[in-house]
Design a protein around this nucleic acid. Structure first.
Length: 638
RNA sequence: GCCGAUGUAGCUCAGUUGGCCAGAGCAGCUGAUUUGUAAUCAGCCGGUCGGGGGUUCGAGUCCCUUCACCAGCUCCA
């Protein structure tokens, strides 16, 4: 048979050789490292015989496919260990994930606890050392059902219901057999380092009306050292957690009395927030946005009209009432209905379009208690919201302009690792959405076309649209790799319909505008959380609350420091004097921990020279400078 | 909302099988020290052990309940 390699080379091999054997013909090292292979475009076990001409690509620990197989096999190993250690364990699914793998299990009356972890790890290691091969077997549906009936594995039986006879495979390693598509690594002995990470509840098949199983998370590595490094990386990531840094740097707080999920911005956090807002305000002003301010509550009818009440009425903060008249108001969960009222409050001419109405609008949404998470998921937050009312002809250019603004914001913050996600409606659940198919088709096409036009790399998710329209969402990961939606751009034909918005065209006829909802930051809260985690609290110079601290070597130099502070203030450089009665070492340490970017040391020498000595956060010493050269250097850093 | 864990001073944490006035470091305050690039020294202050209820001669330790927080699931206009 002819085997074609990724580099285009073709070599002749005897029929029936496995990927491992083929790898052996190239190098022993490769054969040892190969974990799985892509054979004719399909993911295969490296130990599966190939008996026809094929293209082949080997996968090792270095690529994601190799890791996928490694962790998938590790999930089986975990299951084998659990079955050996506990009676009557029923198994759900056990896939690899981005970092490791999990297995969903039903342990009946037994409750697993973290105390069991060591025991499980030991058992897994013991089984791994047996170097059991993963044996693949094609099996008939009837036999597969019989096997799991015998085992009383009800979840596997349910999974089998959806599978077609003739496509079903079993994998066996040691004493454990699982329903599985594969591929798997050659044998368990490749797994050298094992850590059971955590336990969590997970609904069977992601359905909250069904049984909650126990999800056991784990991670494994081919080398002990890699596990150690991974755990250290996790520790480092935890130090960047915005909840921890937010407290340490006094950026924001929560109060049980104020209420959970209701962040309180402290002075330093507020400074950063306002600088972010000012930056965006300027950008928007350049682009012709007009700012507005609307109330935090709105009459219930407003949301009945918008459709929010029907969709979220039960699941939102309940209406508040005027005591005498009994009128009903809702805390606003969105700004768009208010902005629609602004558009509709007087006749509009096509000459006014596109009308771009912006607001840093604070909204309140009831989020389930289990969802609240620092600043990332809260019940009260401020959107950097704007609504663009335009004609269908203008839609594309407006969308592109917003797209450009949004990517510019991400760039400015140095967030280069984002995913642009096109969130479309779920074709199987049309009842979740308002408006006509025509409206939806047009809106979805607008987003898809615009991203194509600028060659933006996107992923598409069905069912992630808002109920009134599709979205282009910008997803960013936090320190621990969890994905969050920041910026969003939404095309909406439906709310203009609902609010019966009209403009008079050049033809003197009434026309319906299209609406773009957009928020480049998303919300100030969530944006801040990501900003904190990405910078580890070392904010860019232009954003940081305090750019420098002046540290007198001796407090008798404090008056000179105050003068220096005033001089720098004239150049819009902000900071403070640390004239506490402490040693210089202590002051340096404290201000380093506060992430002050520039530590300016003042002593006899500096005073005589009329300058400052500059130490950058992190320890780099730039030496003595005159005030003029410091200002120049500083401005070059911005 | 669900599952599991956690909750002791402003922060980080000790507190043995329930048993004398609940401890430490940092922070804070007071004083001494006057400092040249990541912690000067001493003294003092500070907690009804998340809240409520119960068991017990006795509860930070055990039980119930409630709240908050953490991990994940579900949800996310």
């Amino acid at each position: 048979m002819k085997i074609t390699f990724p580099d285009g080379n073709v070599r002749e091999y005897e029929n029936g050789l496995t990927s491992v054997q083929i790898a052996e013909s190239i190098s022993e090292g490769l054969a040892r490292n190969v974990l799985s292979a892509t054979v004719n475009g399909e993911m295969w076990d490296a130990t599966r015989p190939i008996d026809e001409d094929a293209t082949i690509k080997f996968h090792t620990w270095k690529d994601s496919e190799g890791k996928y197989a490694f962790w998938h096999s590790s999930a089986h190993l975990l299951a084998e260990a659990l079955e050996a250690l506990f009676d009557n364990v029923k198994f759900g699914i056990g896939p690899p994930i981005e970092n490791g793998f999990y297995y969903d299990i039903d342990t009946g009356d037994t409750i697993l606890t973290p105390e069991d972890f060591t025991r499980i790890e030991k058992k897994m290691l013991e089984l791994a050392q047996q170097k059991n091969e993963f044996e693949r077997k094609e099996i008939s549906k009837a036999d597969a059902i019989a096997y799991f009936k015998e085992k009383n594995d009800t979840y596997k039986l349910e999974l089998l219901e959806d599978l077609e006879d003739g496509t079903i495979t079993f994998y066996t390693q040691g004493e454990f057999t699982d329903l599985c598509r594969g591929p798997h690594i050659p044998h368990t002995g490749k797994i050298k380092a094992i850590k059971v990470m955590s336990l969590a509840g997970a609904y069977w098949r992601g359905d909250e009306t069904r049984k909650q199983m126990t999800r056991v998370y784990g991670i494994t590595f081919p080398k002990q050292k890699e596990l150690k490094e991974y755990l250290e990386l996790l520790e480092e990531a935890k130090k960047r957690d915005h909840r921890k840094l937010g407290q340490e740097l006094e950026l924001f707080m929560f109060s049980e009395k104020v209420g959970s999920g209701l962040p309180i911005w402290l002075p330093k956090g507020t400074q950063i927030r306002e600088r972010l807002q000012n930056y965006l305000r300027q950008e928007q002003e350049k682009r012709g946005y007009k700012m507005v301010v609307t109330p935090h509550i709105g009459g219930k009818d407003l949301y009945v009209t918008s459709g929010h009440y029907a969709k979220y009425g039960e699941d939102s903060f309940q209406p508040i009432h005027t005591p005498r008249e009994g009128e009903e108001f809702l805390l606003k969960p969105m700004n768009c209905p208010h902005h629609c009222e602004i558009f509709g409050h007087r006749p509009r001419s096509y000459k006014e379009l596109p009308l771009r109405i912006g607001e840093f609008g604070t909204v309140y949404r009831y989020e389930q208690s289990g969802e609240l998470h620092g600043l990332s998921r809260v019940r009260g937050f401020t959107q950097d919201d704007a609504h663009i009312f335009c004609t269908t002809e203008q839609l594309k250019d407006e969308f592109l302009d917003v797209l450009e603004l949004t990517t510019q914001v991400l760039e400015k913050m140095g967030f280069d690792d984002f995913t642009a996600q096109i969130s479309l409606r779920d074709p199987d659940n049309p009842e979740k959405y308002i408006g006509s198919d025509e409206n939806w088709d047009a809106a979805e096409a607008a987003i898809i076309d615009a991203t194509k036009e600028v060659d933006m790399e996107t992923v598409t998710e069905l069912g992630e649209a808002a109920f009134y329209g599709p979205k282009l969402d910008f997803m960013i990961k936090d320190a621990l790799g969890r994905k969050w939606q920041l910026g969003t751009i939404q095309v909406d034909y439906n709310l203009p319909d609902r609010f019966e918005l009209e403009y008079i065209g050049s033809d003197n006829q009434a026309h319906r505008p299209v609406m773009i909802h957009r928020a480049p930051f998303g919300s100030m809260e969530r944006f801040m959380s990501i900003l904190i985690e990405h910078t580890a609290g070392k904010f860019p110079l232009w954003l940081t609350p305090e750019q420098f601290v002046l540290i007198p070597v001796d407090n008798k130099f404090a008056p000179y420091c105050e003068e220096m502070k005033a001089r720098l203030a004239q150049h819009d450089i902000r900071g403070f004097v640390d004239d506490r009665n402490e040693t210089i070492g202590k002051k340096i340490r404290d201000n380093e921990l506060k992430r002050i970017p520039l530590l300016l040391i003042i002593g006899e020498n500096e005073i005589n020279a009329g300058g400052v000595s500059v130490r950058q956060q992190g320890g780099e010493d730039l030496g003595a400078m005159s005030v003029e050269s410091f200002v120049e250097w500083f401005n070059a850093q911005l």
